[in-house]
């Protein structure tokens, strides 16, 4: 059993079990309340699933792509929860969970997953038809571009059905992690997928105050 968290867009939390599926899920698409709702969502999911924290085998976390602040809240929570129960964190690319949700809904064609990166940019990833284990096969991405830049960035754009993700389901993300694990699939790296450098400007020489 896993606790699954994704805050790459809104906030989504789930408790999942490989055999029994999604046992509980809480989500909001609000992109400004991550730190506020995350604790209660975890608590409510465990309660509804009637699962003790100590019964979980790991915490699955969506590593983005996603805007800085919200994405980080989920990763911080996942790390801390895993530390609290002495179990590992398993990291998943958030777009993979969107592609996996498409597969779970019976749609098996190649997809282009697009999500809002703010500042008039989008995150995108492409997926081929699923592999033999029914897992999404990422072809390109995740990457960042202006919306009108997709045509240049995506190879054979017209072969993909576009899926605009307005949320990432932690239930799907958790089930993906549960499925990846026995098949020995590689999880994501520990670096959050911000895909953007921090906004900073190097200190310039002080400006004159006298004319």
């Amino acid at each position: 059993m896993l606790l699954a968290i994704d805050t790459s867009i809104g906030t989504s939390v789930a408790v999942v079990d490989r055999d029994r599926g999604v046992l509980a899920e809480r989500a909001t698409s609000d992109t400004r309340s991550h730190a506020e709702v995350i604790g209660a969502y975890i608590d409510e999911c465990l309660g509804e699933a009637q699962v003790a924290a100590s019964a979980l085998s790991a915490v699955a976390i969506g590593m983005g792509p996603g805007p800085f602040t919200g994405l980080r809240v989920g990763i911080a929570a996942a790390n801390a929860f895993a530390f609290g129960i002495g179990r590992p964190v398993v990291r998943v690319v958030s777009h993979d969970a969107v592609a996996f949700a498409e597969l779970r809904a019976g749609r098996r064609d190649p997809v282009l997953v697009v999500s809002d990166a703010r500042r008039r940019e989008v995150y995108w990833s492409t997926y081929a038809a699923p592999d033999s284990e029914g897992l999404p096969k990422r072809v390109q991405g995740p990457a960042l571009t202006r919306p009108d830049g997709l045509e240049d960035a995506v190879t054979r754009l017209d072969e993909y059905r576009r899926v605009d993700a307005s949320e990432v389901s932690a239930g799907a993300l958790g089930m993906l992690a549960e499925t990846m694990h026995p098949h020995g699939r590689e999880f994501a790296a520990s670096e959050p997928l911000y895909l953007r450098s921090p906004d900073v400007t190097l200190a310039k020489a002080p400006k004159r105050v006298t004319g």
């Binding site: 995350i38 604790g39 975890i42 608590d43 924290a53 980080r72 996942a78 801390a80 929860f81």
Partner: peptide
Amino acid sequence: GAAKALAV
């Protein structure tokens, strides 16, 4: 975020 998760 971390403190809430650790508390739960």
